[in-house]
Design a protein around this nucleic acid. Structure first.
Lengths: 214, 214
DNA sequence: TATTGCCATAATGTCGACATTTGACATTTA
DNA sequence: TAAATGTCAAATGTCGACATTATGGCAATA
């Protein structure tokens, strides 16, 4: 076994993320340290650390002396987050699209192909989720601003795909989802920067609006 | 007295920020919990919490089992951070400039006037710093995307004005600093979105480059 | 009945101590 | 001499307990 003795805090953070995704912890609900500590049979210290990690990710809100809660996303939070993500991703692509090689384009094509294949088999989007991540990461493959890439993800993906996991799975049909990304990819193949930017911002805005509508 | 019994953690975080600004804690230097705990005569728990707060802000890096260190900014970190800040601020202004009223413009003029006045008295930029914050906040006064505003600040200001505090004070002469902002303000008065965007990105890039050059 | 004040309960904030890991120095060995 | 190993102090991770603060219910009062 490839010795991996993670620290408790990180394992707990992952467990709580899972609990939020699965709906065991709902938005706005308080997260009580003693409860988790008992349930996991560890002390409160690592629990507190884990909760602070999640606070940094925006999954949990903290009010001194009042405890921590699963973040309650307002409609505006969702729209704003996706808007920021779109702005950053669009800027990152716009600034780096000129550097794309033929190989880069092939990589993007491969991702879109995988989406097409997956859309024939999968009944919901759960299989699509990692392809979606891969697609957007591939769009930024030539963007050398690591901070931009990181913040773009942090802004919307990390939040929405955990807090709104179940809703996210119902947003689109696998086919429609694939087509949306194919459209964006086509603009990339054509190196049409303006279209890519416009399509990305539209794409993200629509996702935000659909999440709200649910 | 205006009862303000902040939690220890937050006070400690502020103290450490101050220590970083003043150069008592230098970049890359390990931050040892027992030391701070002794010095402040409190236990390690609030120290650890404070360090995690600072980790979220990007001022401190953490490696499990290896401790925390004051973040060591690479040249690329600085350039990338300012680039992200510029992208967000420019997008925020671009999307909201059409909403500006005459009163909004007067507010911006007032800030620039304050800068002019300050530049005649101050010998360094220390007095300018809060005016700089105010200037950029005023640029985004009509941007209703709170998350964008927050992330724009977090991306560069919070980091650089703490980690590179002393360098920052020597970047420009007060006069030159004022003129730079006046130039941006003029483009705003003219509602010339393209110029504002271009000037902002240039402004931030130059700041990054000057910090590196030091 | 509605409001105020008090109390009991439970959660968070903080503490001091122990367990484990890390990094450096000393020692051994080739 | 240089590499490998053993040893030890110091720092981090975790624990259980106490102190302080928030929350809800109940009684007293207007």
């Amino acid at each position: 076994m490839l010795l991996k003795k993670e620290t408790y805090s990180r394992q707990v953070a992952q467990i709580i993320r899972q609990m939020i995704r699965e709906g065991e912890l709902k938005q706005g609900q308080p997260v009580k340290e003693p409860l988790l500590a008992n349930r996991l049979s560890i002390s409160r210290a690592p629990i507190r650390e884990a909760l602070q990690l999640l606070t940094d990710e925006g999954l949990v809100t903290s009010e001194p002396q009042k405890g921590k809660r699963v973040r309650q996303l307002t409609d505006k939070d969702i729209l704003d987050s996706y808007d920021v993500g779109a702005i950053l991703e669009a800027a990152g692509v716009a600034d780096s699209l000129m550097l794309w090689t033929e190989g880069d384009i092939l990589r993007l094509r491969a991702v879109v192909d995988d989406m097409h294949n997956a859309s024939r088999n999968a009944t919901d989007l759960s299989a699509m989720m990692e392809l979606d991540d891969l697609f957007h990461a591939t769009l930024l493959q030539r963007c050398d601003n690591g901070r931009l890439v990181e913040m773009a993800r942090l802004s919307c993906v990390s939040i929405s795909k955990v807090l709104c996991y179940k809703i996210w799975l119902t947003l689109f049909s696998p086919k429609g989802f694939t087509e949306r990304h194919a459209t964006i990819a086509n603009a990339v193949y054509a190196k049409d920067v303006a279209s890519v930017v416009a399509l990305l911002r539209k794409h993200y805005r629509e996702i935000g609006e659909r999440i709200i509508a649910s």
